[in-house]
Design a protein around this nucleic acid. Structure first.
Lengths: 140, 140
DNA sequence: CAAACTTGATACCCGATAGTATCAACTTTC
DNA sequence: GAAAGTTGATACTATCGGGTATCAAGTTTG
């Protein structure tokens, strides 16, 4: 499920979209594909699922990319990774509200050693309803 | 601040937008103006502030209306009004994730006697950063 | 009661944005 | 080592959604 196995053209073909579109989603901060040391992208089945979900929400529900990004920017990472007050003080994400945490530089806090792609925060968004589910879980 | 005092044309003039635009924002679930018994809309200074914020986010930050709605749909009302498990079981909002709670019918739960316009949940969105601030407050 | 305004609805327009095509340079594969 | 594929970048297009204008019918106001 999480094994990066599809090249970008294979993944694009699987989903019926173009290669530049996949790269665009990445540039816009919606997905984080695996990268080989040569910088080549690889996609897992979970990545495919995620992109299909993004695609559906954009095409059928008519949200735009900025809207998706703002929704992702509300995932309460601080409560998920349980970072310290010290960490938060140095975190651009904690004070912002326009970009998801994985688009932000985080050299100075607990996240500096985490790989965002595998972080629970990024993965909280598996399908479209799951961010709210996460909030329900954290706020009983 | 909260006193409904401007008619729709006055409010529109104050903000430099058209009357149909104001009605559209309402139809889309972004604002809830006060309504006289005759159904005529009235806007308070807080309403004006809210609309200006929505406008800025749409025009400058390029989010679209569906995006705004999805962001509003993440306000954790259940934790704010502290509704019961019973209430949640009967609440369409609690199980959905596409519309803010005030767009949902709520006859069967604790919200049935609340006026959404004056509810803290609706008012959590005073300016654009405040939803995340609310989450920070609730999730220390 | 008449003028001004509001109501919901429909029809229309223009700009912006999601998506594609194409490029030269570089990697992978066999 | 040659063919196939990937990289980032730029340029382009078609669509569609935010916003406005306008309507007849109803309401306020003075």
């Amino acid at each position: 499920m999480d094994e990066p196995k599809y090249t970008i053209s294979t993944a694009a073909k699987l989903m019926g979209i173009s290669v530049p579109t996949l790269r665009m989603y990445e540039r816009e901060g919606l997905i984080i594909p695996f990268k080989k040391t040569s910088n080549q992208r690889l996609y897992s089945d979970r990545d495919i699922e995620r992109v299909m979900c993004i695609r559906k929400t954009i095409n059928e529900d008519k949200i735009n990319i900025e809207g998706m990004r703002r929704v992702l920017a509300l995932i309460p990472c601080w409560a998920i990774v349980k970072c310290s007050a010290e960490d938060r003080a140095h975190c651009e994400f904690y004070s912002g509200h326009t970009k998801p945490c994985w688009m932000i530089n985080h050299k100075k806090n607990v996240c500096k050693d985490r790989e965002c792609r595998t972080c629970e925060v990024y993965r909280s968004f598996g399908n479209c309803a799951s961010i709210k589910e996460k909030l329900k879980e954290l706020l009983p």
